[in-house]
């Protein structure tokens, strides 16, 4: 098994001395590890990585949700410049590749004298991108409301805030449950970006590349991470479907 070593040259050493190098093929001549060996040596690291991934997912999604609500409010308000700004934000962050954004944050910002920790960069990338999609889903949820219902509420004498509280927000949220569930899973998948920067503790994806550069973890090392990701995704999906069934609005 002779995988050629391809070390990617670091683009530039930063003033702080941090280098960023991408990992490559496995070292020569290591023992192939089976599942029991893997678990004894790396079992606790897998658990740590799982918790890291979960934590990152929860933080990112919460941030994405809050930012998404703020952007939706901006996009809907009657102030044209703010509307355009909100739409512009959406177009940037739903179309930019995660890797490109992360590279900009980690590599390019220091040239503007903004140096953020690796974790912060990852968190920003994994929050801003889902936030754009969150706003899109909330808008779609709002668009399921028949405009006539807003008029009816107005004709009954409800003020703007009452209309938002009684009609718009409940219906928008209840109609977006499935989309937001998918977004939570997508956020978890986006957190794999954390594997591209040195992070301690590692996330599930970073751990697989870590293991495979020190030993021959084979398919097993990959499968453990994959199954952990997958199971989380399925559980989230089930919970989301159940919630949606309860709160779904019949039309």
């Amino acid at each position: 098994m002779n995988a050629a070593r391809q070390i990617f040259k670091p683009c530039r050493l930063f003033p702080t001395g941090r280098a960023f190098c991408f990992l490559s093929g496995p070292a020569k001549g290591d023992n192939h590890m089976d599942i029991s060996a893997l678990l004894t040596q790396y079992g606790d690291k897998y658990l740590q990585a799982l918790l890291t991934t979960w934590k990152l997912t929860v933080f990112s999604f919460s941030l994405a949700f809050l930012i998404g609500i703020a952007i939706t409010v901006i996009r809907v308000c009657p102030i044209r410049p703010l509307q355009l700004f909100g739409d512009f934000y959406i177009q940037i962050f739903r179309n930019i590749p995660g890797a490109a954004l992360l590279i900009l944050l980690v590599y390019a910002l220091p040239y503007l004298n903004i140096v953020l920790s690796y974790y912060t960069c990852v968190l920003i990338a994994t929050s801003l991108i889902p936030s754009a999609f969150c706003s899109e889903y909330l808008m779609a949820g709002m668009n399921t409301i028949a405009p006539g219902q807003i008029e009816a509420a107005r004709a009954l004498g409800m003020s703007f805030s009452k209309i938002m509280k009684n009609i718009v927000i409940p219906q928008a949220l209840r109609s977006s449950v499935l989309s937001l569930t998918n977004l939570l899973v997508a956020t978890m998948l986006t957190t794999a970006l954390a594997s591209q920067v040195p992070m301690n503790p590692m996330d599930l994806t970073g751990l697989v590349s870590h293991i495979n550069t020190r030993a021959v973890g084979g398919v097993t090392a990959f499968l453990i991470s994959a199954v952990l990701y997958c199971t989380t995704a399925v559980i989230i999906g089930q919970i989301g479907t159940r919630i949606d069934r309860k709160v779904r609005i019949l039309r």
Binding site: A146, E151, N166, R174, I249
Partner: peptide, 12 residues
């Protein structure tokens, strides 16, 4: 009060 052509009841 107002009654609309498309009823406009609150669906939720």
């Amino acid at each position: 009060g107002m009654v609309f052509q498309s009823f406009n009841l609150f669906s939720h």
